[in-house]
Computed example of a mutant assay.
Amino acid sequence: MDAHGLWAKVKATTEPRTKARLIFAMSIRSILLVSFAVVFIGGLSAVFGPDNSGLAVAGFCILLGIKHVPYGYRATDSVIALAFVLAAMVCGGLAAQAWPPVPCLMVNFLLITVILILVADEPLMGNAGLYVFGYLFVSQTPVNGEALASRCVLALLLWLACSAVLLHKHHGKFQNVRLHDMLAAFSVSSAKGLWQIRLSAGVAMALLIGELAGLPRGVWVGYACMSVLLPFGEAGTSLPMRALQRIGGVVVGSLLYAGFSLVVPAGSRILFGPIAGICMGFSSKYMVNNALNCFGALLLAESVYGVSGSVTLRIYDNMIGVLFAVCCTVLFSLLERHASSDEAPATNRTKPSTNI
C-alpha cells in the first residue's frame, strides 16, 4: 500500500495500537524503498557510469511501478512494448544531442505519444507520469562514445529485469487483448486520446521553450508542465489549484533547501536526498511531495550553479513550465469545443432523434 492507502486506514481506525502499527509499517516501507533506491541506483551508476544514472532512476521507477500496474494487454506483448519504451528513451537522447530544436520537438512529441499509448491505457493508475518522467530524465542527459554503449547495455539489462517482473506478476492477464488492438483503438477524438496528445504536445513544447530560451536545466520546465497536465478526467477540473500547488511546493521546498544549506555543511548535504525520500513515504499531498522533490533536484544542481543560483533557477523554470501548461490546457480546451461545435450540426442532420 502507498501512503494514501495507509493514511486512510490510520484515519479509519480508532484503536491506538492499530494506528501505531500502521504508522510503524509506513516507516518501515519508506526506509526500505529509499534503501533499495540507494543500492539499485548507486550500484548501476557505479557500474555504468554517473552519466547513466538517469536511466538507472528511470529503471528503478519502472521496476516499482510495473509490479502493480500492467499495460492492459497480453504480458508477452507488453514485454515488446517495454523494449520500445526503453529504446525511445535512449533515442530521444541521441536526437537531443545531434538535432536542432525544431526537429527534436517532433521527435519528442512522437516518442512521448507512442509511449503514452503503450503504457497509459488507464491514466488514473499513474503510469503516464512515471514513464514520461523517465523519458525526460534520460533523453535530456545525452551521452556519446563509451557512455552511450554503456547506456545501451544498461537499457538491455533493465528490460530483462523489468520484463521478468512483468511476466511474473501479470502473466495470464488480458490474454484476449493484443498490442495491435491497443494501437488500433487509439483515437484523437476520445477523451483519453485527447489527453495523451495534450500531454505529449505540452511536454515537447515545454522542452522547446527551455531550449530556445537557453534556460539552464530546461528539463525542469518539462517536468513542471508534465506535472500540471497529468490529471485525467475529473481530476483535471482542478487545474488552477494543481498549478498553484506545484508553484507553492517548489517555492517552499527551494527556500527550505536554501535555509538548511546555511546551517548544514556542504559535505553533509548528500543526506538531503535520502531524508527527503523517507519523508515522501509519509506524504499523500501533491504540494508536499513537490517541496520534498526539490531537495534531490537542488542537490544535483548546486555543484554547477551554487545554492542561490539553483534555488532561483528552480523557481523560475517551474513558473515557466506551469504557466505554459495552463496556457496549453486552455488552448486545447478551446480547440476541443470548436471541434465539437463544428460536428454538432452534422450530427443533428444524420441523427435527428435520439429516441430511435
Results as ranks from 00 to 15, higher is better:
residue 217 R to E: 00
residue 168 H to Q: 08
residue 71 Y to C: 00
residue 110 L to D: 03
residue 166 L to F: 15
residue 15 E to C: 10
residue 354 T to L: 14
residue 346 A to H: 14
residue 151 R to A: 10
residue 262 L to V: 02
residue 347 T to A: 13
residue 278 I to K: 06
residue 271 L to A: 06
residue 302 E to H: 11
residue 350 T to I: 14
residue 169 K to S: 15
residue 24 F to E: 06
residue 237 T to H: 02
residue 345 P to V: 03
residue 14 T to G: 15
residue 16 P to D: 05
residue 307 V to A: 05
residue 284 S to W: 06
residue 207 L to K: 11
residue 194 L to A: 11
residue 204 A to V: 10
residue 162 C to V: 07
residue 322 V to K: 03
residue 218 G to I: 01
residue 295 F to H: 01
residue 320 I to R: 01
residue 156 L to T: 11
residue 32 L to H: 11
residue 225 C to S: 12
residue 234 E to L: 10
residue 280 M to K: 12
residue 56 A to C: 04
residue 229 L to A: 01
residue 230 L to T: 01
residue 178 R to A: 15
residue 286 Y to D: 07
residue 282 F to Q: 14
residue 261 S to F: 05
residue 49 G to R: 07
residue 29 R to M: 13
residue 202 G to Y: 03
residue 243 A to S: 11
residue 354 T to H: 14
residue 99 W to F: 06
residue 333 S to A: 14
residue 178 R to N: 14
residue 209 I to T: 00
residue 149 A to M: 13
residue 325 A to H: 06
residue 27 S to T: 12
residue 142 P to N: 09
residue 128 A to F: 13
residue 9 K to I: 12
residue 85 V to C: 09
residue 60 F to N: 13
residue 282 F to S: 05
residue 110 L to V: 10
residue 133 F to E: 06
residue 50 P to Y: 04
residue 184 A to W: 11
residue 113 T to W: 10
residue 340 S to E: 00
residue 104 C to F: 08
residue 231 P to H: 09
residue 236 G to V: 00
residue 103 P to E: 04
residue 253 G to Q: 03
residue 86 L to Q: 07
residue 62 I to A: 06
residue 319 M to A: 10
residue 348 N to G: 14
residue 319 M to C: 13
residue 248 G to D: 01
residue 136 L to K: 02
residue 319 M to K: 04
residue 24 F to C: 02
residue 113 T to E: 01
residue 287 M to C: 07
residue 281 G to K: 01
residue 129 G to N: 15
residue 320 I to H: 06
residue 340 S to L: 00
residue 310 S to R: 12
residue 101 P to I: 10
residue 303 S to N: 09
residue 52 N to V: 10
residue 130 L to H: 01
residue 128 A to K: 02
residue 292 L to S: 07
residue 164 A to Y: 10
residue 156 L to S: 13
residue 356 I to V: 13
residue 57 V to E: 11
residue 232 F to N: 05
residue 259 G to A: 14
residue 162 C to W: 05
residue 332 F to K: 02
residue 68 H to I: 12
residue 166 L to Y: 05
residue 157 L to P: 13
